[in-house]
Amino acid sequence: MPELSAKEATEEMRVYRYVTKDRYRLPVAQADSMGELAALIGRSYGTVRRAMEAVYRGQRTSGPYEYVDLSDEEEEEDVFVPVLRRGV
């Protein structure tokens, strides 16, 4: 089996989020693509894309849409979170 190159080993995954409009910006919905996010929140793909582009270009300072780049290590850590219970 061939070994992974340095670039492939540190490959990142982008996660798109719809967040609350307050100062905490808590995630309401999360998806692997803009299309999936749009379907989850009941908006069109074009609406989500235009809003994200406006923030990226500096036309708006913030909005309800954002993305986060996760490395493979971070993604794997988020999948399994051990739960410790007292008295068990």
Rank of each mutant, 00 (worst) to 15 (best):
S33C: 09
R49G: 01
R60Y: 05
L4P: 02
G42I: 03
Q59Y: 15
G42P: 08
D72P: 01
R23D: 11
A38Y: 05
R57Q: 11
L4R: 13
E74F: 00
P82G: 04
P82S: 10
S71Y: 02
Q30Y: 02
A29I: 01
S33A: 06
S71A: 01
R49F: 14
S62D: 12
R23Q: 10
Y24L: 14
E36H: 06
L40D: 15
L37G: 11
P82C: 04
E53H: 09
R23W: 07
E3F: 09
G35A: 07
R43L: 12
R60S: 05
Q59S: 10
G42A: 06
A54M: 10
E75W: 15
A39S: 09
E77N: 09
S44I: 04
A54G: 00
A54Q: 08
D32L: 13
Y18H: 13
M13L: 13
L40I: 10
P27M: 04
L4Q: 14
D32C: 10
R25N: 07
V81S: 11
R57F: 04
T47C: 01
V48I: 08
P82Y: 02
E66Y: 00
T20C: 03
Y16W: 15
A38K: 06
A9K: 14
Q30R: 12
E66W: 02
D32Y: 14
D72F: 07
F80D: 12
L37E: 14
V68H: 12
V81L: 06
M13E: 08
R43H: 05
Y67F: 13
L70Y: 15
R23L: 09
R60Q: 05
G63Q: 04
Y18N: 06
R14K: 14
R86C: 05
G46M: 06
E36Y: 01
A9Q: 15
Q59D: 15
G35W: 11
P82A: 10
L70I: 01
D72L: 15
M52N: 02
P27V: 04
D78P: 00
L84F: 08
M34H: 05
S5G: 15
A39N: 14
V48Q: 07
T47P: 00
Y56D: 09
V15S: 06
M13D: 01
E77R: 14
E36P: 00
V68F: 09
D69S: 08
G35K: 12
L70W: 14
V88P: 13
L84D: 08
D22C: 04
M1C: 10
M13P: 00
E76Y: 11
D78C: 03
M1P: 10
T20P: 02
E74K: 03
G58P: 11
G46W: 00
P64R: 10
R85V: 02
V83C: 06
A51Y: 06
V15Q: 07
R50Q: 13
V81N: 05
S33E: 10
F80R: 12
R14I: 13
L70F: 14
T10I: 08
S44G: 12
A39F: 00
Y16A: 05
V88M: 12
A6G: 04
D22G: 03
M52H: 08
M34E: 14
R25Y: 07
G58V: 07
D22A: 03
A31I: 03
V81F: 01
T10N: 14
R23C: 02
